[in-house]
Amino acid sequence: MDPNLEGSDEQQRRSEIYTYEAPWHIYAMNWSVRKDKKYRLAISSLLEQYPNRVEIVQLDDSTGEIRSDPPLSFDHPYPPTKLIFIPDKECQRPDLLASSSDFIRLWQISDSDNGRRVELKSLLNNNRNSEFSGPLTSFDWNEAEPRRIGTSSIDTTCTIWDIEKEVVDTQLIAHDKEVYDIAWGGVGVFASVSADGSVRVFDLRDKEHSTIIYESSEPDTPLVRLGWNKQDPRYMATIIMDTSKVVVLDIRFPTLPVVELQRHQASVNAIAWAPHSSCHICTAGDDSQALIWDLSTMGQPVEGGLDPILAYTAGAEIEQLQWSSSQPDWVAIAFSNKLQILRV
């Protein structure tokens, strides 16, 4: 598919849009949050073969060009399902990039003067005995407690890792079916979505319980993505498989969505809460659109449903969306083999 449709061309001419073309279809993508690494992103390929690639790319402010950094590119066994940079704004720790696939891998990025390379720092393998541990669908790095990474797996479990000790903190059988996404809401609280159609909230202080706070109205319609509003943990958003709506939940009022965002013309693929505002969310989908919504009015019912405030049309189905938390004016999207960073 030709990504350079007229619509996006026109937009590109008159506003700040930077595009990077990778040699492969991009799926996973993440912004570095480090202060000293502005405009740095990691992207990875989605190829149905053993060798896959991860690249670190950087926007050069002066030339307006996004460039890959070949010494910092590396092979990855099968496609990563997600990439996250270490949540370390103040640069107090070594720069790490985590990837999930069969296991969680932590890659240490060194780009000092005495060498620029990426090394596999650790491989968090939950496969400690012969029992089969399923591949990971997603994971989330706990911003409040960066030792903690939570993973979701097709084997119905969520696993919480202590990445410093490289040990499993907790493994929970979280759902009745495959777990598709996980998100932290606080130091010890996370939520997960699953093929069983439920959103469940877990508290690490009491692992025996979980609370189902939403179930898709059609039984067993999988929920595929979950985003927890970091600015205001009362809200989370989830994507239902094969639907064009995004369901926003208030965790205090289980079972009923606060609002359903239904202005996409096709299925939604990604959601991202604004890192700097408690009431803005960006959604992107198969209709090639990225929409930004203002949810500050969600208390009041709106005739015909809420409208987004801003829209961007990309050249193809948008597969991935990440809002930069270090520079909240910037949103990155991935469609086809392109990475675009957009000014909000």
Binding site: Q11, R263, I309, D329
Partner: peptide, 11 residues
């Protein structure tokens, strides 16, 4: 962002 041109357009 006030000063800079946004990539997004009003919906």
């Amino acid at each position: 962002n006030g000063n800079k041109e946004s990539s997004f357009t009003g919906w």
